[in-house]
Simulated scan of single mutants.
Amino acid sequence: METKIFSTNEIKEAAEAINAGKLVAFPTETVYGLGADATNETAVKQVYAAKGRPSDNPLIVHVSSVTMVEQYAAEIPDQARALMAKFWPGSLTIILKIKPGSLSKTVTGGLTTAAFRFPACQPTLDLISTAGVPLVGPSANTSGKPSPTTAQHVYHDLNGKIAGILDNGPTKVGVESTVLDLSTDQPVILRPGAVTKADIEAVIGSIELNHRKVKANEIPKAPGMKYKHYAPNAQVYVVDPATDWQMVSEWVAKQPEQVGIMAKNSTLKTTKFPANAVLFSIGDDIKSATHLLFDGLREFDNQPAIKIILAQGFVATGLGAAYMNRLNKSAGGCHFDFKA
C-alpha cells in the first residue's frame, strides 16, 4: 500500500478514508497525529499496530467542538470550561471522566477517563467535521522515535502502513500539547507543553506538575508517562545551561567519530568546533529551540555515522519545561559530564 499525500483541498477524500476505517495522519499546531475514527475500535487497533505502540498507552481524542466532548464526558467541570474558553482551539489536552461505555478501552487504555483536545489547525478541524467523528491522534511516528513535525517525517516512518497524510506544511509549536488531568480533585499537569503551568494557573488557580514515574504494572493516564519516547538511534546527552561549550568542543575533538551538536545560534557562533562536529542550529531562543527539537533529532537520525548527539539544555521553566521534558526523555536522562 502506497501512502497518499492529501492536500488541504482533498479533505473530503481524507474524511472518506477515515469513515472507511482507514488511518490518515493529520497536522496540528504541535506535531502530526495518526488519525483514526475514535468510535471505530477496529480502526483504533490499527493505530497501535502501525506505530508499534503498547496497548496500555491511552490515546488523545481530537475534537472540533466542545459539543463533541459532551457526547463522551460524564461531566465538564467549570474549571474545564474556563480553560476550554481560554485555550481552545489550542495545544491544551484535558483529561475528563467519561460516560461508561462511551469510548472503547482501546482508546482509553482501560481507564474510566479520556484525554480531549481541540487543535488549532483549521484543515484538521475541517477533517473532523467532515468525517463527523472525533479522531484518536497519537504522534504519527514509529513508537519511541522523535515526533513528526512535517508530512515528510510521517511518510518516512509510516509509508505503506497508513492510507494517507493530510499535508499542511511544518507545524508551528514543535512539541506535543500540554496534558492536564481534571479527573481528580487536584488538577495536575501530566505532560508539559506550550500552554504553561503559569498560563493555566492564571485561569483556575494552583495546580500541580507531575514528576512521578509510572510503574511497570500501571496504566499511564496520558502519553509519554511510561515508555521510551523521542529517541533517535544515536545516544543523546543534555548539555546543561551552565556548561562551558568550548570545553565541550575540546571533548568532541578527541572523539574518533562524528558528533552531532544541537545548539543555539549564539553557541554555534562563539564556539570553535572541530571538523568532526556536525552542527544543527536550534535558533535563538526557547521558542525556536522547542520548534526545532524534533527536526534536529530526526536530521541526525538520518546520519547513521553519528552515534552521539549533544543537545543544548535550557532552564526548565515556562516553555523550557516542555523542551526539557522531551529532551530528557530523548536522552534517557543522560547529561553530558565529559565522561559520556
Score class of each variant (00 low, 15 high):
Gly164Glu: 14
Lys197Gln: 07
Leu96Gly: 12
Val175Asp: 03
Met1Leu: 12
Glu70Val: 12
Leu268Ser: 15
Gly110Gln: 08
Leu297Lys: 07
Pro256Cys: 04
Lys197Cys: 08
Ser91Thr: 10
Ser143Asn: 04
Thr171Ala: 10
Ala43Phe: 00
Thr112Asn: 07
Leu34Thr: 03
Gly296Arg: 01
Glu208Asn: 11
Ala115Gly: 12
Val188Asn: 07
His335Glu: 15
Lys172Gly: 02
Leu34Pro: 00
Lys161Gly: 03
Ser104Tyr: 05
Thr196His: 02
Ile162Arg: 04
Ala202Tyr: 08
Ser183Glu: 06
Ala321Arg: 11
Asp185Ser: 10
Leu127Arg: 08
Thr113Leu: 00
Lys272Pro: 13
Val69Gly: 07
Val239Tyr: 13
Ser64Asn: 09
His62Trp: 00
Ala115Tyr: 02
Ala85Lys: 14
Ala25Asn: 05
Asp181Thr: 02
Leu190Tyr: 08
Leu59Cys: 10
Ala120Glu: 11
Thr113His: 08
Asn9Lys: 14
Leu92Glu: 13
Glu10Lys: 01
Thr130Leu: 00
Val61Arg: 04
Met262Cys: 14
Ala20Leu: 03
Ala234Pro: 01
Pro100Glu: 08
Lys99Ser: 10
Thr30Tyr: 06
Pro232Gly: 07
Arg298Glu: 14
Gly35Arg: 00
Ser7Leu: 05
Glu70Gln: 13
Val239Ala: 13
Pro134Gln: 09
Ser104Val: 02
Thr178Lys: 04
Val252Pro: 13
Val315Gln: 07
Ala322Tyr: 05
Leu209Cys: 14
Leu23Ala: 06
Met225Leu: 14
Ile309Leu: 11
Ser64Lys: 00
Leu319Ser: 05
Val239Lys: 08
Ser7Gln: 13
Thr108Asn: 08
Tyr227Trp: 06
Ala242Asp: 13
Gly333Ala: 00
Arg191Met: 06
Val248Met: 14
Ile18Met: 05
Ala198Tyr: 11
Phe294Leu: 10
Ala14His: 06
Leu310Cys: 10
Ile162Thr: 02
Ile219Gln: 06
Pro170Asp: 12
Val278Arg: 14
Lys213Gly: 13
Thr30Lys: 00
Pro58Asn: 03
Pro27Asn: 02
Gly174His: 05
Thr67Cys: 11
Pro89Tyr: 12
Thr8Phe: 07
Phe336Lys: 07
Asn168Lys: 06
Val173Arg: 02
Val63Cys: 01
Pro241Thr: 14
Gln255Thr: 15
Gly110Asp: 15
Pro223Thr: 12
Ala340Gly: 06
Val44Ala: 13
Ile282Ala: 13
Thr270Ser: 15
Phe273Ile: 11
Thr124Val: 02
Leu59Lys: 09
Lys145Arg: 08
His156Phe: 10
Pro274Ser: 09
Val188Arg: 01
Pro119Ala: 12
Ile306Asp: 03
Ala50Gly: 01
Ile204Ala: 05
Ile5Gln: 03
Val31Ala: 00
Glu176Ser: 01
Ile60Leu: 05
